[in-house]
Nucleic acid binder design. Structure first.
Lengths: 188, 188
DNA sequence: ATAAATAATAGACATTTGTCTACGTTTTAT
DNA sequence: ATAAAACGTAGACAAATGTCTATTATTTAT
């Protein structure tokens, strides 16, 4: 069974007919991305959002000192892209690259709008994804006040599966702390 | 003209018929909230999202040391509520209270779903609001790595209008720094 | 198998930010 | 009008985190 089919049915009340799914799938472009290659580069316009079938990616920007600052990590069944660039068609401030060899399904904004319009089930899916995303980001924003230790604690509780996919210094950056601080925190 | 009517038409491609708006409006409950009163209290379930017609509110939680930690600030034309509690029907971890006397329009999740279903324009509205919200939160998440100074700089660039509505120590907490640090940063 | 690149840890030190107390000002309530 | 509460600033000090360098372990490429 197609992973996207499985994924969509997790979020819709009734199972999508196979026929409909076939039409849906035609709006997606399958792309393989090798480790270290970019899905999106700073300055580009994010024309597609990517549903991750296989692999792991990270979103980051380069700060004034030339350091990589990780904003998001993604694994299977997550969506990767720059919301701002995607909607506003402005050059992205972020890079998204593959941390492992990946397989992703790309979809354009036009296709999303079209599918939302034509398939209530797809509209419902996008709606629910939005809700889930809101919940996750609200938690992340609450963490702005946290100490390094509490950030790591929350990370382990909610996202420990990232730990198997990304090295510690990437996790540290994702949490907004240095690798040295994370190393100290973990030691305790 | 009703502020909600004006607001909705900002986000939809074609102006909503007055008739439709009247039906729409029936799903909202007008509520006045006096300064310092709660729209939502920790432990309660967030049954409604609030569209703010007039006034200013803040969302915060109480940390281990009993300190108020501000997560969000809201003014006219913003939506206030706890996404997680609203969707999952779990007790909220947050408080939302009025910083000024407010007038808000409450709407339940059922009403939102119903209106999305019945009025494509409303569905479109919710879709676009989601997009805007995603853009804003993505920026906020990127700020996790920022220094106190850079956080304040971004705040002034994007949300300086909050400065007229909330005192400095509330802004500081919203930025994830202490009032003392903010005071120092501003001095420069 | 070997060399090179990548990761994790440790310690010394610097910097940033938080904590606490005090004081003067402004706002609010009565 | 007056007292009380809330607010902003300041300085001294403490704590948390960042920076840098070195060292070792682990992984990757050839």
């Amino acid at each position: 069974m197609h992973p996207l089919f499985h994924y969509i049915n997790q979020y819709t009340s009734s199972i999508i007919p196979k026929e409909d799914f076939k039409v849906l799938l035609r709006h997606f472009i399958l792309k393989k991305i090798r480790k270290k290659q970019y899905l999106l580069q700073e300055g580009e316009i994010c024309k597609y959002f990517a549903f991750i079938v296989k692999g792991a990616l990270r979103q980051y920007y380069i700060d004034e000192k030339g350091m990589e600052r990780v904003i998001n990590l993604y694994v299977e069944n997550w969506w990767a892209g720059d919301h701002e660039s995607f909607v506003s068609l402005t050059p992205s401030a972020y890079n998204i690259d593959a941390w492992e060899d990946c397989e992703v399904l790309l979809i354009s904004r036009e296709s999303i709008l079209k599918l939302c319009d034509e398939y209530p089930a797809f509209n419902q899916l996008i709606f629910k994804l939005g809700e889930r995303h809101n919940i996750a980001t609200q938690k992340r924003i609450a963490s702005i006040n946290y100490t390094a230790e509490k950030r790591y604690k929350c990370f382990v509780e909610n996202f420990s599966f990232f730990a198997n996919r990304f090295p510690q210094h990437i996790i540290a950056s994702y949490l907004g702390i240095t690798k040295d601080t994370l190393s100290r925190v973990i030691k305790k």
